[in-house]
Amino acid sequence: MLRTLLAAMAAIVMTGCATVPAEKQDPRDPLQALNRPIYDFNMDVLDAYILRPIAVGYVEYTPVPVRRGLVNFTTNLTMPTDIANAALQGKAEHTGINVARFLINSTLGLFGLFDVADSFGLKIADEDFGQTLGVWGVDDGAYIMMPAMGPYTSRNVAGDVVDNFVFPEIALSLPQSILLYALKSIETRAQLIPQEKLLNESLDPYLFMKDIYFQRQLSEVYDGKPPIKEEPVDFDEDFLENL
């Protein structure tokens, strides 16, 4: 099975060496000729035959309280990353909320299985180092479609590398890290099942996913309040002279 997947991936990547037509070029996506076939491989092979069936079975056979507990546990486990990044971004309120959430859920919430902090009105402030770099003024960089992992930007790739060295994740063994990643990936895919129709009915699913990804990144950097770009207004020079 693995050999077949690798062979398919190699064939798809080789077909991606073609030049992207000028009308489809995107300055955010200089690697589009490679990204598109990787996207096709992710969706048509990995998702269709592996990830989606697992996610569907997970939703069907896993009781909601168990799913919620797993989400709470994995979220709490990575909370030190959110705390560190909120502090690096100078967000004192978010830092305090995340510290309080981690302390409350790690104790009263039985190591994070129950989100007790949420009942106290302490909503999670999700932060990562990719967002931190964005707050510091680092551009998104190139859009990258990662095999089996989905969309990224070069900024977020660098951010993930840094985040993975934050305790307690660094204290996990390799099997534990793989299990943590698998749980988060399956739950994320399960949450996307209701949104599949939007993707499938779009004229170009690749572009649709890319645009949604960039919108989400912008929203996260600005905490849901991205700046509104004002279009330049062309004034008549004669009119301006007569003012």
Score class of each variant (00 low, 15 high):
K123N: 02
K123R: 12
K123Q: 09
I124K: 14
A125V: 14
A125I: 13
A125R: 15
A125P: 01
D126R: 12
D126G: 00
E127G: 01
E127A: 03
E127Q: 10
E127F: 04
E127N: 09
D128L: 11
F129L: 05
F129H: 02
F129V: 01
G130L: 12
Q131W: 10
Q131A: 09
Q131L: 13
T132N: 05
T132S: 10
T132L: 02
T132P: 13
L133Q: 08
L133R: 07
L133T: 07
L133C: 02
L133P: 06
L133H: 04
G134Y: 01
W136C: 00
W136P: 11
W136V: 04
W136N: 07
G137D: 06
G137C: 04
G137I: 03
V138N: 00
V138G: 00
V138S: 03
D139N: 10
D139H: 09
D139S: 13
D139L: 12
D140C: 00
G141T: 05
G141D: 02
G141Q: 05
G141A: 04
Y143K: 05
Y143D: 03
Y143N: 01
Y143R: 05
I144H: 01
I144K: 06
I144G: 00
M145G: 02
M145W: 11
M145D: 02
M146L: 12
M146V: 15
P147E: 01
P147K: 07
P147L: 13
P147R: 09
A148G: 00
A148I: 09
M149K: 00
M149W: 15
G150H: 02
G150E: 04
G150M: 02
G150R: 05
P151K: 01
P151D: 02
P151N: 07
P151S: 00
Y152N: 14
T153Q: 10
T153D: 07
